[in-house]
Design a protein around this nucleic acid. Sequence first.
DNA 1: TTGCAATATGCAACTGAGTTGCATATAATA
DNA 2: TATTATATGCAACTCAGTTGCATATTGCAA
Lengths: 145, 145
Amino acid sequence: MQTLAILTQVLKKNKVRITTIRKALLMILLTRTKPMSVYDFQKRLQHEGIDAHKVTLYRDIELLCTLGIMREVSFTDGFRRYELEEDHHHHAVCTACKEVFEINDQALEKAVFSLERRTKKRYHFASLSHNLEFLGVCTRCFKHS
Amino acid sequence: MQTLAILTQVLKKNKVRITTIRKALLMILLTRTKPMSVYDFQKRLQHEGIDAHKVTLYRDIELLCTLGIMREVSFTDGFRRYELEEDHHHHAVCTACKEVFEINDQALEKAVFSLERRTKKRYHFASLSHNLEFLGVCTRCFKHS
DNA sequence: TTGCAATATGCAACTGAGTTGCATATAATA
DNA sequence: TATTATATGCAACTCAGTTGCATATTGCAA
């Protein structure tokens, strides 16, 4: 379990300044579990009275990724999203409302990692990671259609 | 197994004109198995002496998708790619050379579909499809690095 | 085979996510 | 609190994909 103190420590160790925006980004990461796009972060910050330029967000997010604090979660809808490095989840995206549902299923996680190992061996890939997303229509959107 | 005759029949039935570009697109789909981006199609057509504008390709590809002839295969690198509807495969993408390797593994396909059914039930999604891609470094790129 | 109408194509100009160079503002250190 | 290196913002860019409209081509009927 990460805390703000642990994360700011990482910044300090790397001689990276702890600015208002960066601290706010870390707080958001700690309180949100769903992957967030740059625009999600921007809106959330605005809500807290912080106006951050998108360029800054892109740069800070890239920084936090290289420091191993957050990771990019790839989706196929054209928006890059990010989450705390410690969460590795798969997601189900509702194609109607674009909501991202986090899938919490140990058996699924295990199965996917075993598929990854299998594929790495069969196709002689030096390193391998994966993206798995489910696309569908959530209950709520289904009822309203 | 699809043939050019079957596919042009589909166009005719839908009162859609069979133009040089469309016929060439179908031929390419029939002889290629890997998913192709719009720019892949454009290069391939140029090679056969056909200069097609990207706008035309986007529109024709969309048309062929709605006719059920091709399908979009989503990747997370920002390029949409397309393949014949009958192929449903998963892919391994080399992050170095961007080559797409088709994965032909019956056991993997079965496993993934079972994960899909499982997830649909657990999360009450009305309909569900999935994207699974593996990302890594292929043998050739690994040797050259 | 030709002429006509409907459809396909190309062009130019646009959208929107993400990027880059540079000037200004701010955090950390002495 | 002054200094200086780093962070932020701005403007202008890139590039995949989209849209409106003018022109070219296809399929059909005569």
